Amino acid sequence: MRRQGYPTYLHREPEWDENEQWTTTHWLSNSGGAWLRDLLARGIDVVWATTWQHAANEHFAVPLGLPELPIAVSGEGSRLLGSSSWKSIQLSRQFDHRPLLWVDDNPVPSPSLALPALRLRSDRVLTRFHWIRNWDIGITEHDVRDMNEWLELTRTGHGHEELRERRRRERDRSRATFRRSRWGNEAEYQRWRAIHGRLEIALGVNQSLPHVLAWYAFDHPNGLDPVEVTELVVEWGNAETPLAAELIRIIRCGNAMGA
């Protein structure tokens, strides 16, 4: 690899020799290479989504038996994002109304920046991130079977229904996991939700105060301190916000309904 053209974004500079070259070894997956060639043979578009950017074609296409492929992510992004978020943002702005399978060994850490969350709502069911969990091994035959099965489902209306059902089940599992981690069980979540709902009716849905007070009430099941509630009102409320005594009454009614 040569210094000229080496991708500097999110890549550490290697030790260049006197000719401004660097020699190293990269291990490539035979299963992955064969799968990519098969995708191209089936007429499926394949693009690079890598921090190597244009250097991917120069260094990796020939060993994998691939033609020059389009580059789907490029340029200099914020180093605060990290490589996976940088890729997710760029991929989400392309391929509208088309199935999109992204294969990578580095998941996006923030759910709000995950590829399905960033794509058009109508495209989310046709969006998949496939995580290669062991980058030393790369794409395996098991990965290939799993991804091919998903791609086949994107081809028909029946397959789309199956993908929607899978998405619903996954969303339900994620919600249940989150509720257990934060509220402990479904009954406690319903108690919090009742409080939150009554506060939204009283204060309006476009305020932060209902959320803040609901969490305060949830974290203080044995009693509410009027002084602390007043402090929250001062910090998060406005001139139209009811006094602490009225808010405590609303919260207690919510507690009773949740019980």
Rank of each mutant, 00 (worst) to 15 (best):
D225Q: 04
L36V: 00
G33E: 00
W131Y: 14
A114L: 04
R169G: 10
V125L: 10
L120P: 01
N148Y: 00
V47H: 05
N134L: 03
L64C: 13
Q53P: 05
Q207N: 14
H196N: 14
A214T: 12
N148A: 12
R191A: 12
I251R: 05
R173T: 05
A194Y: 00
P111R: 13
H97M: 09
L224C: 02
R124F: 01
W35E: 04
R167S: 10
F178N: 13
R133Y: 09
N185V: 10
A34H: 06
K87C: 09
F178I: 10
D105A: 06
V144G: 07
V125H: 11
W131H: 14
R2N: 15
V73R: 05
T156Y: 06
P99G: 07
H59S: 14
G138A: 04
V229P: 02
S88W: 08
A214W: 02
T23H: 06
R145L: 15
L243W: 03
S85Q: 07
P70D: 13
Q53M: 10
S88D: 07
A176L: 13
P109A: 10
V212D: 00
F218G: 05
S112M: 09
W215K: 11
N19T: 07
H11R: 12
S83W: 03
R124M: 11
R171S: 15
W192K: 01
G258D: 03
D136S: 15
N19S: 09
P116S: 07
F218V: 01
S29I: 03
Q90L: 04
E20W: 07
E231L: 11
R175C: 06
R93T: 15
R93P: 05
D45C: 08
R167D: 14
V46P: 05
E149D: 14
V62F: 08
W52P: 03
E20S: 04
W183H: 12
D172T: 10
L64H: 09
L153K: 14
N134G: 01
R252Y: 05
V229I: 15
V103M: 12
V205P: 01
E235R: 13
S174A: 13
S78F: 02
W27A: 13
R179K: 05
L39M: 06
R3I: 08
H59T: 10
D143Y: 09
F95A: 03
L232A: 07
L66I: 00
H130T: 01
D146G: 01
A55L: 13
P63E: 04
H160Q: 14
D146W: 08
R42T: 10
W16R: 00
L118H: 02
T50R: 00
A49G: 11
G32S: 09
A202M: 14
A41M: 05
V108H: 02
S31F: 09
P109R: 07
Y189C: 08
R164I: 12
H158L: 15
L199N: 10
A194G: 04
V73K: 01
P210W: 10
D17F: 00
E200Q: 14
E13F: 06
L232N: 07
L243F: 03
L199H: 09
